[in-house]
Structure formats: C-alpha cells, structure tokens
Design a protein around this nucleic acid. Structure first.
Lengths: 140, 140
DNA sequence: GTTTATGCAAATTCTTTGCAATACT
DNA sequence: AGTATTGCAAAGAATTTGCATAAAC
C-alpha cells in the first residue's frame, strides 16, 4: 500500500508509523482547537488511555505537538504545523477562556521574543492568555 | 497588639487577617522562588492541606499571588509584589528548569504586550519559559 | 526471533469537597 | 448568636506504571 500523508508526517518526525499512531494523528487533525487526552479517548474509542498517553508523550518529544498547560486541570495539546522542530520565533500564543474552558491557538499571533537574562537556556516558551473568548463575551 | 506588616498586607488586599493566613503569608515570603501547596505543607506543618488549599485560592482571587502552571504536575505560586491588582504591564516572566524542576520568577523581565486579536478579553497572561537554569547548565 | 508497541488493571499524585468543630465579631 | 474559618477524612480527577500479550521489522 502506498504511503499516506499521515505516515509521511510521522516519518518526517522520526516516529515509526504504527496503526495506533496513524489513527491518533488523523484524529488530532480533526480538532479545530486544542485537545486533551480525554478528548482523544472519546474520539478514538477503540484505543486505551495508556496508549494515547504514551503516544502523546512520544509526539511531544519529537516536536510533532505542543503541550499547553492552561490551568484547567487537564493538559491540552495542539499539532505543531511546522515540518521540523519548532523554532521559538515560530511559536504561537494560546488563549484559554475562563468561561467555556476551551483553549484556542492564536495561530497568527507569534510569541514575542524578548531579552532573557544571562545564563538561562531557553528551550520552549508558553505564552498563555486567560480571559473571555468572543463567543462567551457575546453571551450577555 | 499593634498591626504587623503581614496583617497590613492582607487588609490592603481585602482579606481578613486570621492566624492561619498571617502564618501562611509569612511562610510564603521565605521562599526565594515559587512554591507549591506541598512546599507550604512542609514548611507550615501545623496546618492542614485543605486550609492551605483554600487560602491559596483566596489569595489568588484577591491578587495577592500569581498562579503558575509550569507543567511539572504541581501548580506553583508566587507572591505578587504590587500593592494593588496586578496590571498586565507589570506582570513578569517565569522560568521552569526541566532538570531540577524549580520555577523562577524573572522579576525584572516584563511580559511583552502584543496586539491581541479582536474579540478576546484579556484578563491575565502567563509567560513561561522552559529550559535549563544557570545552576543546572554549569553542572556538566 | 527479537525488539517495540499496546491493552488492561492498578497505583500514584495532586486537587477538591462535605461536614463537624472552632474561632471571630 | 451568627457568620466565617479551619481540620479531618474521604472523594475525585488526571496522570503514570507494571506486566502480559500482540504487532512490527
């Protein structure tokens, strides 16, 4: 069988394309915003929690997805849309709505690069805004 | 008995100064960096976890402390050193070391204010950097 | 056939709540 | 007295691990 798009993405990130991983990647792409482990469990209900957990860890390690701690109690994830490892200049900002609990990727808002103090080695930046999203603001 | 400094701080933030709250505020001030609920439990070992938990929530509500999700599994907190509610322009950046697990306040690095998309109401910003701290970098 | 990945079940960790007892005003 | 706070014990929620089976190469 010919290589599908998902297999290709996995290989690009040096991840062995197994059935579970392809299915999960496919599932992740269907989410508009960010997703949690529980979201994936619901969508891909043939898979076990622990397999999803380990797959998420693997994908994060290989820079196929971003990890977002939004303080909601459950870790959120979103696909990284760069082919290779994410450079800091390309990272985008996330928005967590305190009313509906959703977390959005603000894809076109880049993380501002600032002067960091000497001595620290920067590997990753999480820029998370909390507040009310447009939908929740318009409701009263 | 005359008003001590901790009582004064609590009153400024419209928090009733009880014995537990004064003790916790005092304990929090002794931490150089950020602290977790477990850290407070160890330091103030006469107090119960649930009292600490509720005090943290109260202090956060009244903008006496910042809540930091650093992805370490445990929520971190740090005292807010402004007298009043924290304006976004005054918020500072945090650094989480992936080696030693400590989270630092970079007090003199302010959160850069950027153009946010229309429609979102910004209430709070968490700018968290992950990487290696100076101490862990110098160890080999 | 050997290595790697997965599912199941259970353990761990951190957070949160109900309720009775205590302290404050 | 009446309200707000605290401690104890237990529940909840999310994450993580051990181990036996199954899949991949």
């Amino acid at each position: 069988m010919s290589e599908n798009r998902f297999e290709e993405i996995l290989r690009q990130h040096e991840i062995r394309p197994t059935a579970v991983r392809i299915l999960l990647l496919e599932t992740m792409e269907r989410f508009e915003n960010t997703f949690s482990l529980a979201d994936l469990e619901t969508e891909a209900d043939t898979l076990d929690k622990s397999s999803i957990f380990r797959t998420l860890a693997l994908f994060a390690q290989h820079h196929l997805l971003h990890v977002i701690e939004d303080g909601s109690g459950a870790t959120k994830y979103c696909l990284c849309h760069n082919d290779h490892a994410c450079r800091i200049e390309e990272m985008h900002v996330h928005f967590h709505c305190e009313i509906c609990g959703k977390t959005f990727c603000l894809d076109n808002v880049h993380v501002p690069v600032i002067r960091y103090p000497e001595g620290y080695e920067v590997r990753e930046i999480n820029y998370l805004i909390k507040g009310r999203c447009p939908a929740c603001r318009s409701k009263r």
